[in-house]
Computed example of a mutant assay.
Amino acid sequence: MGLGVPEIILIIIAILILFGGKKIPEMMKGIGKGMKEFKDSQNGEPEQAATTASDRPRV
């Protein structure tokens, strides 16, 4: 028993109502960054010490 299209649409609408349109991209960015760090740690790759332009504070 899986989720059908109507159920998925209702879930998406509920998420939009709960979090709003502005918070969702921030949440997805955080989830993506966490997944990337997790994969890098499993592969044994060292963390990058240099900050990227998006990590620098805005002036």
Rank of each mutant, 00 (worst) to 15 (best):
M1V: 13
M1Q: 12
G2M: 13
G2L: 14
G2D: 12
L3E: 11
L3I: 11
L3T: 10
G4Y: 01
V5I: 10
P6N: 05
P6A: 06
P6F: 02
E7R: 04
E7A: 10
I8G: 08
I8Y: 07
I9H: 04
L10I: 05
I11Y: 02
I11R: 02
I11K: 02
I12E: 01
I12A: 01
I13A: 11
I13D: 05
A14G: 09
I15G: 03
L16K: 13
L16Q: 12
I17N: 13
I17T: 14
L18E: 12
L18R: 15
F19S: 12
G20E: 12
G20D: 13
G20R: 11
G20L: 09
G20A: 14
G21W: 10
K22E: 12
K23M: 15
I24T: 00
P25S: 09
P25E: 09
E26W: 11
E26R: 15
E26L: 14
M27D: 03
M27T: 04
M27Q: 09
K29D: 06
G30C: 03
G30I: 04
G30Q: 07
G30W: 06
I31L: 05
K33D: 08
G34F: 07
G34W: 09
G34T: 07
G34K: 13
M35F: 15
M35H: 06
M35C: 11
E37F: 07
E37D: 13
F38R: 11
F38D: 06
K39C: 01
D40H: 02
D40I: 00
D40S: 05
D40R: 03
S41E: 07
S41R: 10
Q42L: 15
Q42C: 10
Q42F: 14
Q42H: 10
N43F: 05
G44K: 04
G44P: 03
E45S: 04
P46K: 00
P46F: 00
P46W: 00
P46C: 03
E47Q: 04
E47I: 04
Q48R: 14
A49T: 06
A49R: 06
A49E: 11
A49M: 08
A49K: 06
A50C: 08
A50D: 15
A50W: 05
T51Y: 06
T51W: 09
T51N: 09
T52R: 02
T52F: 01
T52E: 01
D55Q: 08
R56K: 15
R56G: 09
P57R: 05
R58S: 10
